[in-house]
C-alpha cells in the first residue's frame, strides 16, 4: 500500500498531524500500538503555563511571552514555527471541535485556570466549552460534589486546598464540599467512565438534579467530581453532558441554578 505521509502515534499530536496532511489531499497512514492516549488526557489544550521556568506564577498570556521565549530558547517548537502558525493551528483545532460537536473555549492569548482533583490549578488555553464552568477566575461560591464509592476523587481535600489558594488571592472562586450517597448507575461499578455515561441519560440527570437541588445555597455554582476530574471523560464525553432543564443548567464541570 502506498502513502504520502505516515504518522507514528495516535495521540493528539499524531491525529492532528494526520488530519492536517489529509485535509490537504495527502494519503495518510497512522501507525499506533493501541488506541492512543486520548482517553487519558485532560481534554485541555495547554499553551505555556509558566515562563520563565523558575517562576511559580502562571503566565497570564502565552502569546505575550513568545518574543522572550524565542530569545531564550531559539529551538523551542514555538520559536521555530512562530506566532502565526501557532494561531492558525489553534484556530483549526477549534474548527474541528465545532464540526464534531465538541466546541472549545479559550484562546492562545490568555491563560485559563482550571481546578485539578487534588485542589490546585492547571493553567491552560483551550478547554471544552462545558469545562469553562470550572474556570477559577469566576468569583463566587462553588459546591464541590463527590460520589460515594468513587475512588478517584476526594471533594473535601480538593475544597480545602482550593480555599487555601482562594485565601492567598490566587483564584477567585471559593469552595465547600458534599458527598452524594450511592447513585444508581444501572448496576455498574462507580467510576468516572460509568458515571459520565450515566449523565448522558436523561433519567439519571433528572434524578441527580432532584438530589442536588436541596444542597444548593443561593449563588452557588456546582462542580462535579466527574468529567474533567477524571480526565478521560473530558475528551470523549464533555460535549454530550451539557444540558439544560427548566431552571437548572448543568454542564460537565458545573451546575448553576438560574435566577
Amino acid at each position: 500500500m502506498f502513502y504520502d505521509v505516515i504518522v507514528i502515534g495516535a495521540g493528539l499530536a499524531g491525529l492532528m498531524a494526520a488530519e492536517a496532511a489529509q485535509s490537504q489531499g495527502a494519503r495518510v497512514l497512522v501507525l499506533a500500538r493501541g488506541m492512543g492516549s486520548l482517553p487519558l488526557t485532560t481534554g485541555c489544550i495547554d499553551g505555556l503555563g509558566y515562563f520563565p521556568r523558575t517562576t511559580n506564577i502562571p503566565l497570564s498570556s502565552p502569546l505575550s511571552a513568545l518574543p522572550q521565549l524565542k530569545e531564550d530558547h531559539p529551538y523551542h517548537p514555538y520559536a521555530i514555527v512562530g506566532q502565526e502558525k501557532i494561531m492558525l493551528a489553534m484556530a483549526h483545532f477549534q474548527e474541528l471541535g465545532q464540526v464534531i460537536g465538541l466546541p472549545y473555549y479559550g484562546t492562545f492569548a490568555s491563560t485559563l485556570l482550571i481546578p485539578t482533583p487534588l485542589g490546585t490549578y492547571h493553567p491552560t488555553c483551550l478547554v471544552p466549552e462545558t469545562m469553562n464552568q470550572g474556570n477559577l477566575s469566576i468569583p463566587g461560591p462553588v459546591l464541590l460534589l463527590g460520589f460515594r464509592g468513587l475512588k478517584d476523587f476526594f471533594p473535601f481535600l480538593a475544597a480545602e486546598n482550593l480555599n487555601i489558594l482562594h485565601s492567598q488571592g490566587k483564584i477567585a472562586s471559593s469552595f465547600r464540599a458534599e458527598v452524594l450517597e450511592k447513585l444508581d448507575l444501572g448496576g455498574k461499578a462507580m467510576n468516572g467512565l460509568n458515571l459520565a455515561r450515566a449523565f448522558d441519560g436523561e433519567d439519571f440527570r433528572n434524578a441527580f438534579i432532584k438530589i442536588v437541588r436541596p444542597l444548593l445555597k443561593s449563588g452557588d455554582s456546582i462542580a462535579l467530581s466527574t468529567g474533567y476530574l477524571a480526565g478521560k471523560l473530558a475528551a470523549g464525553f464533555a460535549g454530550k453532558n451539557k444540558f439544560t432543564t427548566e431552571n437548572t443548567e448543568i454542564t460537565e464541570m458545573g451546575l448553576k441554578p438560574k435566577d
Binding site: P39, G186, G187, K188, A189, L193
Partner: peptide, 23 residues
C-alpha cells in the same frame, strides 16, 4: 491500569453485568 480497554469495551457500555476487561 489506564482503563483504555474499559473506555472502548462495548459490553461494559451496554450492561452492568460485566465489570469490564480491566477487572
Amino acid at each position: 491500569k489506564c482503563s483504555i480497554c474499559n473506555a472502548y469495551c462495548p459490553v461494559l457500555k451496554a450492561t452492568g453485568l460485566f465489570p469490564g476487561p480491566k477487572l
